[in-house]
Each structure stands twice: as C-alpha cells, then as structure tokens.
Amino acid sequence: MKISRTVTITIDGKEYIAKEGQKLLWTALENGVYIPHLCGIEEEEKPAAGCRLCFVEIDGFLNPVTACTQKVKEGMVVRTRSKRVDKLVGTAFELLMSNHRLGCARCGANGRCELQKIAKERGLKLKTSRLRSLVPEVPVDESPDKFTYDQTRCVLCGRCVWVDHHKAKIGAIGLVRRGMSRKMATFGETAMADSSCTQCGMCVEACPVGALTFKEK
C-alpha cells in the first residue's frame, strides 16, 4: 500500500507524526510507546485481533478499542492506560496465563518471551490467582531436528501460521479445531516431522512465547 500523507496524533499527551492509514499499534510501537500485543502482524491488512491485549482508549469511542484494528486519523487522541484498559488487559492476560504452562526457568523463551515483557511493562503477575488452571496435558512434539513444539505454552497468536503461509510459503501448519480445542497443528495433526514442514525455522523465530523453540546444539 502506498502511504504518502502524514497525520498528527496524540498518545498519552504527547504528539506524534504518523503515516496515514497505518494501524495505531504500529505507530505507537515505532515511536517507543509500548502497547501489549501478541497476535499483531503489521503487514496483514486484516488483523486477527484475537489476543485482546492491545486495548487503548480513543477519544470519541465509548469503550476501549484494540489498537491493532484502528487506523490513525488526524487529531486522534489516544490514552494507552486507563482504569478500564488496565482491567481488560489484566483479565485477558490472566486468562492467557490460566491456559499457559508456567515455569519460566525451564522454558526456552525465558528472557525473550513477550508474556514476560507484558508482565513487566504492565506490572502483571506471571501466574493466575483468581482463575483455575486450564493447561492441557499434551506431550511436547520433539520430532523435528531443529526445534520443538510445546502446545501447552502456545497462546494461539497465529504468527507462526502467518509466516508459514505468507513468508515461507509452505503451508505445513494451520490453526485447527474450535473453542478450547483450538490449536496450531500440521495437516492431519501429525507430528511436525511427518508433515510437509521444511524446518526453515521461520515459525520458531515468529513465536512470541516458548511454544516453538530451537533445540540447543
């Protein structure tokens, strides 16, 4: 998409110049304003908007909105924090934690994990106190030579699937099933090594958490 014009928007009281048509999430991130996010992909015209973490308040909107779906507009006034935003983000994050196998010390993503970053930025706990654990009992798929897939650490952001389809252009993986059974899997839900996966590693690099991690050499 050709972007030529610029607009001025205000985030948390500070003015920023933004590319017209860009989604607010990316404008904020480019300018060093952090907004929690897991499923966002900048190049994707139709955002998945599934993780529900990038809520912000925008003047003129009744309720908090997701920054990944909102195009910047001239004069837009944004607040990344408010009581309502914090409550929504807090709940969404805690829900994700209730479905995420804990134990950062034994996780391959420890230190580069987006969940850790969100927790740090927003002062959230990397565990759940109010909710019950809904972590499925699924063994780690260690079949590929280069990486492993731990479904119990997957947050269903879909970034791996997107790079597999749009960058690697293999189509080895997809998001399958519905509701609580939704998961990333190969066609026929086979072990990764038995699929058309070429082990290019792009999906592992795209994973924001410890679901896909490279095997140590």
């Binding site: 599934g50 993780c51 994700l96 209730s98 479905n99 099933r177 519905r178 509701g179 609580m180």
Partner: peptide, 17 residues
Amino acid sequence: QKESCGKCTFCRLGTKQ
C-alpha cells in the same frame, strides 16, 4: 462456550472459566 470458535482470548478462555 461449546460454540466459541476459540479465536479470541475472552471468549475462548473467559467463558470456560
């Protein structure tokens, strides 16, 4: 809950909780 598609966090995990 059964009919949730599972895409978004609130519906998938929230209704289950």
